[in-house]
Amino acid sequence: MSYIEIRGLSKRFGDTQVLDNLSLDIEKGDVVAVIGPSGTGKSTLLRSLNLLETPESGFLKIGEKEYNLTCRSGSDRRKIRLETEMVFQQFNLLKNRNTLENVTEGLITVKGLSKAEAERRALLELDRVGMSDRLFHYPRHLSGGQQQRVAIARALAMDPELLLLDEPTSALDPELVGEVLTAIKKVAAAGNTILLVTHEMNFVRNAATKVVFLEHGKVEAQGTPKEIFENADNPRLKQFLYKINFLDLVDYYI
């Protein structure tokens, strides 16, 4: 039995079955990378776990606690949201709050921490991602990479069981990707459990403990980065890796 279990997760948009009875196991401290062609439900998987989308069915088990992801009551939904935190592709920092306030906001309003406690937690996490020198800056004063690091600190400060990173570097200029990936690595090294959607295959290869290949809303293949990238035997996975220039198909050499 794994620490985090996702069971029977299904979500459809109109006629499209985006997630099809998906199940996934995550161990504590795992860095699970979700890869796959666009439109296969990678983001929807993350968003369903955070209830930004309401799935048609699905259960989330974390340790001893089990949640029904289809629940409707506001307080139940907030409980589930407290277990996970989301980092978005577009950072989504509050534009009217400075760096420090962006991180303390959830701690004060949602977790009910005192201002002093919230500040200590916020500073700890901001320091970890290297943003403690820009506490008074507003999002408009920060580069994309800096904003994303603040967003990571904001999510971490809430102390989630599972950190959801939804293409955290896709909206960044190439030269800013490195700083965010470095921050994520540090976060992973600190023992946080991470579910990550990304197209940075080199990063996945280096930092992930587990890779999940998603296609048509189903887990087509999963394994260690080595198993996925070097010994791929699933034909669909091979095709995908080939398309993103990450696999030299043997046929290629013929």
């Binding site: 955070n50 930004l52 506001g74 907030r78 949201r81 407290l82 935190e85 989301m86 978005f88 577009q90 950072f91 989504n92 920092l93 509050l94 534009k95 009217n96 906001e105 959830g106 309003t109 949602v110 967003a151 904001r154 809430m158």
Partner: peptide, 28 residues
């Protein structure tokens, strides 16, 4: 809308989002 999603993801209630995110920004 991204900010509203972020606030929801943090676990803020509808009222909190209105008071602390939407109103301060729309007032401006």
């Amino acid at each position: 809308k991204g900010q509203l999603e972020a606030a929801r993801a943090l676990g803020m209630t509808g009222g909190q989002i209105l008071r602390r995110v939407i109103l301060p920004q729309s007032v401006v």
